[in-house]
Amino acid sequence: MNPSPSSRPYLQSEVIPETPGATGLAGGNTEARDVVLVREMASGDDRALGTLYDRWHAVVHGVVARVLRQPDDIEDVVEETFWQAWRQASRFDPARGAVQTWLLTIARSRALDRARALRRRRESPIEGDDGEVVVEQAAASDPGLDAEATERRQIVTAALSQLPAEQRQALELGYYGGLSQSEIAERTGQPLGTVKTRMRLAMQKLRSQLQILHSEGGP
């Protein structure tokens, strides 16, 4: 069946030696352009949707492929992610986060919906457990990610890399695996209370580490 969930981290965990300072995150032109694109989408400009897709499809694809394994499912969910963005563009609020974060939140949510539906139909185990697909995909990562997005990503991966392995595992199984705490406990053989504590501590540390993404309005 499924190998141990600790056989592969769901989240990128490379160590970033130095976390960029807050000054490096301010005044992002990329984000401003994204916000304009979303505004244009809200006004019915489908060319803006095309541009947003061109900019972020690889990133959205990366998130979706972390949750799902079947190419057809991945393709469907990538499309549905951008389609939901198109339909909900008028509701986007830049004060609540960056466009990239908004898109990826949609992507993760849609991907987990699909993964849970597949699980209910017993057609698929929890996706991404064997790591094979992810290793191949990581090798094909898009080098064209712009500096601003790369910086945001580095901050998050650096924060994750600083978590103890067992805390990161609890976080990963919940975030990309779509498992509840009791499911994680069952799966890892850990007491439920332990899982809860690990997840809580992990989130508290991350929250502290990622303040930089919010305090300056994001990169």
Binding site: L11, Q12, S13, G50, Y53, D54, H57, A58, V59, H61, G62, V63, A65, R66, P71, E75, V78, E79, F82, R96, G97, Q100, T101, W102, L104, T105, A107, R108, Q137, A138, A140, S141, D142, L145, R152, R153, I155, V156, T157, L160, L171, Y175, M203, L206, R207, L210, L213, H214
Partner: peptide, 24 residues
């Protein structure tokens, strides 16, 4: 907000051109 930022950790993943264009 913290939870939402976690998605940024996923590495970008290029799609095959045909797939990319098909979705677009």
């Amino acid at each position: 907000r913290t939870s939402n930022e976690l998605a940024l950790a996923a590495a970008p993943l290029a799609m095959a051109p045909a797939q990319r264009d098909r979705i677009r």
